[in-house]
Design a protein around this nucleic acid. Structure first.
Length: 320
DNA sequence: CATCAGGGCCCTG
DNA sequence: CAGGGCCCTGAT
């Protein structure tokens, strides 16, 4: 395990209100030792090229002030590296989004008004690169959370990079190139099943297309979807997650998986099971191009309430 | 002990 | 465009 020390501190100024905990501490996300929220700060590993940095984000006094970003490493960090890290972190946590239209919309929506009141400034966010998130979503496919977590742990043990900084231990992901040259056999021993094939193909693709993520960030939604769907292992569900969490497309709600449909049936209609098509139509009608962000606010609010005081019907649906 | 669905996707017919 | 196969694991 590598020990990292504090090297640099930078300040980040989000556009408009930024809800620190809502954005960085999401109870709906599955637990894996790749990020740590403790003492009111968020920690994760960020890979830039061949280097991995420890990043610690701290909230500022008020929701409109800048955040502090601490950069940890085992050797010196140049100013221009800090600049690159800053803009990457700025993007990954949705700090550039202008949400004012969404707030106006939410204020007039009887379902959203109270929720956005509680979480005003929460953003779509993902600490990980597109490749890293894609690995996670592949592990989520066709299984339960407990198994996803165990697959994640064995992959990190074998190919990840464990680091220690600011009093926390966590893993950085492997670079795509580390898996790209493997055979299926070593991955199969980690009990990832048929996902071994997807992981290899995805890794090979990203190792060969270094600029893919930044190209994708510049594409309009439909082209981004088409681009993602060409990658082996990426279907409609995975593409949706990537579009919203990684690319911050706030309207990426054109597909709803069965488990999400059940939850939204309760939340939006107060019923057990509403047809996916009906849910999608209602979301589009009510929230337009903000529909995925709206759904996200509803989900996170629900999961937080569930965490504080268990909600019986939800407990049934998301048992690990 | 056996059975089976589970936070999809690919491939085939 | 429907449906079988993929892998393993915890729930029942």
């Amino acid at each position: 395990m590598k020990e990292f020390q504090l090297q640099k501190i930078a300040r980040l100024g989000p556009r408009g209100p930024f809800h620190f905990e809502g954005t960085l501490h999401k109870p709906s996300h599955f637990p894996a030792p790749v990020d740590v929220f403790s003492d009111g700060a968020f920690h994760f590993a960020l890979r830039q090229g061949s280097r991995t940095f420890g990043i610690r984000l701290r909230p500022a006094a008020s929701s409109t002030d800048p955040l502090n970003m601490e950069v940890y490493s085992d050797c010196e960090v140049a100013d221009r590296e800090v600049d690159a890290l800053s803009s990457e972190v700025y993007f990954r946590f949705g700090m550039g989004l202008d949400l004012s239209d969404f707030f106006r919309l939410a204020a007039q929506d009887d379902l959203l008004a109270a929720v956005v009141d509680r979480w005003r400034g929460m953003r779509p966010s993902c600490a990980f690169s597109l490749y890293e998130l894609l690995c996670i979503t592949i592990l989520l496919q066709n299984t339960r959370i407990s198994r996803t977590v165990s697959m994640m742990r064995s992959l990190l043990d074998c190919y990840g990079e464990e680091i220690s900084f600011a009093g926390v231990n966590l893993f950085g992901f492997w670079p795509a190139s580390a898996l790209a040259t493997l055979d299926e056999a070593p991955l199969r021993t980690l009990k990832v099943g048929y996902r071994a094939r997807s992981l290899l193909k995805v890794s090979l693709f990203f190792a060969e297309n270094q600029g893919f993520e930044s190209e994708l960030r510049a594409l309009p939604k439909q082209e981004a979807i088409a681009s993602l769907r060409r990658i082996y292992g990426v279907g409609p569900a995975t593409a949706s997650y990537l579009l919203f969490e990684s690319l911050k497309q706030t309207d990426a709600f054109d597909h709803v998986s069965p488990w999400e449909a059940k939850i939204l049936s309760h939340v939006i209609f107060g019923e057990e099971t509403v047809e996916p098509g009906v849910i999608l139509a209602e979301a589009a009608k009510r929230w337009g191009n903000w529909r995925m962000l709206a759904v996200h606010y509803l989900f996170e609010d629900l999961f937080w309430r569930h965490k504080r005081e268990p909600i019986a019907w939800l407990g049934e649906l998301i048992r690990l």
